[in-house]
Nucleic acid binder design. Structure first.
Length: 764
DNA sequence: TTAGGATTGG
């Protein structure tokens, strides 16, 4: 028998073991077989806190996983360590270590049914003549070979490209697709979740649980999950995840910069700094690598014959028949189409009668079928819901001028069809609640009558001309047959426009070189910040005559250095809300936090002798929610010291344009760029809207970060071009357009642009 | 056990 030994071997790739020992794999670990002179080797995937048994003996439990082989049930086994060996092991062991044990006793595992691990466990102690060899994996600073290891179990997370059939693993992933929990045909709720991670491998997991709360609380694609003890199996040639005994999950909002707060029903879970970092990294990865979906659909933006997810509040519900159930919901916006009202007996309709009446023009009827009925029945009036993959069906009734629209949640769970209840703490719910409270009910009732006036054709001043009142109208046919450039006044209808997704109309424009650029997303900015953070702030540049500096080092493994330079006014620091600061080495989240508190934030980096702006793909200035960008082509950055001239002004206003000027930046302006297809019965032409603020009376710079303004713009477009209307029923628009020539070597084209026109005040 | 993603009927 080997000697009683606990040997720690660091930094060696091979474990020198006594030559008489032979390796055994999990399959060979069976009761009744001789294990003398045999050893078992596995990776530590979990360790429990060191405890004392009733008789005072130290006790330590670790879980080993055999990464090479597996038996039919599982690939992990419990190892119970007693006495001095327990104490010694607890001190040194870390997850990821390779653990070799010889001279063990094999016994039936009483917990195998619960934990899904090997049917036997290994008992190890000095008294039994056991030997343990540990090959230590690289330590992180936080977990450096100390007893802290045993305070909480350590988990190993497997990337999705390293999953093996028959294993039980822990993993992280970004939700790429999900079906909200639904009642399965068996005894449990079921939820199907497809994950993806930076290895770009997908994993579809089928999760069952009799308790709805035990399934992950996923609300949208892009949420991030952490699964513990998920079983991996091969199915149809692909890896598949399925709940195993002891499955547990945490779910996080996938938005970069959002608080990292897990959604879980577990009362006890481990979550540490490293894990917070993992979530933040996954968010940035997802933002940069996965296609981001636009803002969620509102009732005001629904399109017929499509599917959409709706975040809404339940106002009423009613049984219809055995296989369908009615939900009456609202989201504060008005559906631009006439909507279908499902006839139900008044006594079957649940909900506050007064409210149902008040909101009658804003609620829509959603008919849910089959498997969704049971869940729908259990919903509480007033609760906030997200209904996934609602079908908007256009149905034309006879003797009606235009068709109405129906909302169905068909049976089945294809494409994630289903209903999820959102908690009041959900950020989308908070935003919706605020919006619902702001809705003026009198207004929405007025809208109904306005529509009918419009239909009569007596109400047509949806646009206002701001100049050139003397110009008379020209037919589109005449304009199309004329040479450019010229200016016209026209009367036309807006047949369609592009982009239909209004947030896509926002671009950045350089007035000097006339170029247009897409608005970068947060991921690009984050990458630039990460690149800049590699160079530490240069202390020689700190505390000058015009700014005060502070610097500190982060506590995480990266030991990142952050410096903030507060620009002074009259030798004094100003109130935060008046202060401009420059920041070095900050992350996206940190910068975002600084913008909440300080007037202006300029990300910079150190060189040997001065501070300078980052690459101009990043904003050169952040003020509140707005990021200001400079033109890469036309800017010639000047020394950052130029800011001191503004700081010296009597009352520095820190106007972005002024900051841009002293820094040599040609500032890009946010603009709406849209294409309107106009018709007047004589012809059709495409005219561009190129608008900073005037046409919509909404600043283009603010729309991307302001849902209310997006809502307002959608309403405006619905008035100019009401969806689902016949051409005859569209309102007339009066506008000015100018024609201009665009020539290149190959061709010559005439373009049209709308100018000196604005949307009427009672429309917006 | 259940489902194993992949819409359209009422």
């Amino acid at each position: 028998m080997p000697v009683q030994l606990l040997k720690v071997i660091k930094g060696k790739s091979e474990i020198p073991l006594p030559s008489h020992l032979q390796k055994e794999d999990l399959k060979q670990l069976q009761e009744g077989l001789d294990h003398t002179n045999k050893y078992f080797q596995g990776i530590v995937v979990l360790s429990y806190p060191l405890t004392k048994l009733g008789d005072g003996t130290d006790f330590f439990k670790v879980v080993l996983q055999d990464l090479d082989k597996w038996c039919s049930r599982s690939n992990s086994i419990n190892v119970l360590i007693y006495g001095k060996m327990a104490e010694d092991c607890a001190k040194v062991i870390c997850h990821g270590d390779t653990f070799v044990v010889a001279g063990f006793k094999l016994a039936k595992s009483p917990t195998a049914r619960e934990d899904g691990r090997h049917g036997c466990h290994l008992e190890v102690s000095e008294e039994a003549g056991s030997a343990i060899y540990i090959y230590t994996a690289p330590r992180t600073t936080a977990a450096s070979e100390t007893a802290s290891v045993s305070v909480a179990p350590k988990y190993v997370y497997t990337p999705l490209n390293h999953l093996k059939d028959g294993t039980i693993v822990n993993l992280y992933g970004v939700v790429k697709f999900f079906k909200p929990p639904y009642v399965s045909k068996g005894t449990d709720y079921c939820s199907v979740v497809t994950l993806v991670d930076p290895s770009n491998v997908k994993l579809t997991c089928t999760l069952f649980n009799g308790n709805l709360d035990a399934l992950p609380k996923i609300y949208k694609v892009g949420d991030i999950v952490r699964f513990h003890r998920i079983k991996i199996r091969e199915y149809n040639g692909q890896m598949q995840g399925i709940t195993s005994a002891g499955f547990a999950s945490l779910t996080f909002d996938g938005t970069v910069g959002a608080p990292v707060v897990p959604r879980t029903s577990s009362k006890v879970y481990t979550f540490m700094d490293e894990e917070q970092k993992t979530i933040e990294d996954l968010r940035v990865w997802a933002a940069t690598n996965l296609s981001i979906s636009g803002p969620a659909a509102k009732l005001s933006g629904v399109q017929p014959m499509l599917y959409f997810d709706l975040t809404c509040q339940l106002v009423g519900k009613a049984k219809v028949d055995g296989s369908s159930f009615l939900l009456k919901v609202w989201d504060g916006t008005k559906c631009p189409y006439p909507t279908w009202k499902v006839p139900v007996e008044a006594r079957d309709l649940e909900g506050e009668k007064v409210l149902l009446h008040q909101l009658r023009n804003l609620t829509v009827d959603i008919l849910v079928y089959d498997n969704h009925v049971q869940l729908a029945k259990s919903l509480k009036i007033g609760s906030f819901l997200r209904i996934y993959s609602i079908h908007t069906k256009q149905a034309s009734a006879e003797n009606e001028d235009f068709s109405h629209i129906e909302f169905h949640l068909h049976g089945g769970t294809c494409y994630g069809r289903g209903i999820g209840v959102l908690p009041e703490s959900n950020p989308d719910v908070k935003e919706l609640k605020t919006f619902l409270e702001s809705v003026d009910l009198a207004d929405s009732q007025g809208m109904e009558s306005m529509s009918s006036v419009e239909l009569d054709g007596t109400f047509n001043n949806v646009t206002v001309l701001t100049d050139h009142q003397d110009l008379s109208n020209t037919e589109l046919k005449t304009i199309l047959n004329s040479t450019a450039p010229q200016q016209y006044r026209i009367r036309a209808k807006l047949r369609t426009y592009k982009p239909q997704k209004l947030y896509q109309s926002i671009k950045l424009h350089c007035s000097k070189c006339n170029s247009l650029r897409e608005v970068p997303d947060g991921g690009d900015f984050d990458l630039i910040l990460q690149g800049a953070a590699v160079t530490a702030p240069n202390p020689d540049l700190h505390n000058t005559s015009w700014y005060n500096s502070v610097m500190w080092t982060t506590q995480d493994q990266k030991q990142r250095k952050i410096a903030i330079h507060f620009v002074k006014h009259d030798e004094m620091l100003q109130q935060p809300e008046d202060t401009l600061l420059m920041v070095e080495g900050g992350t996206l989240k940190e910068i975002w936090k600084l913008t909440k508190r300080f007037k202006c934030v300029i990300p910079v980096r150190s060189t040997e002798d001065h501070l300078e702006l980052l690459d101009l793909s990043a904003p050169f200035l952040l003020q509140g929610n707005i990021k200001y960008y400079g033109c890469k082509q036309c800017s010639t950055p000047k020394p950052i010291k130029g800011l001191s001239s503004i700081a010296a002004e009597q009352r520095p206003s820190w106007e972005p344009s002024e900051i841009a000027q002293v820094l040599g930046i040609e500032q890009l302006q946010y603009v709406f760029v849209m294409r309107f297809t106009l018709v007047d019965g004589t012809g059709a032409l495409n005219a561009y809207i190129f608008d900073y603020e005037k046409f919509f009376q909404i600043p283009a710079s603010e729309i991307l970060t302001n849902n209310f303004l997006q809502e307002k713009m959608q309403m405006t477009m619905n008035t100019l071009c009401p969806p689902g209307r016949k051409l005859d029923d569209l309102p007339w628009l009066e506008c000015f357009i100018k024609s201009y020539n665009v020539r290149d070597a190959m061709k010559h084209q005439v373009y049209y642009q709308i100018f000196d026109t604005t949307v009427a005040e009672d429309v917006v």
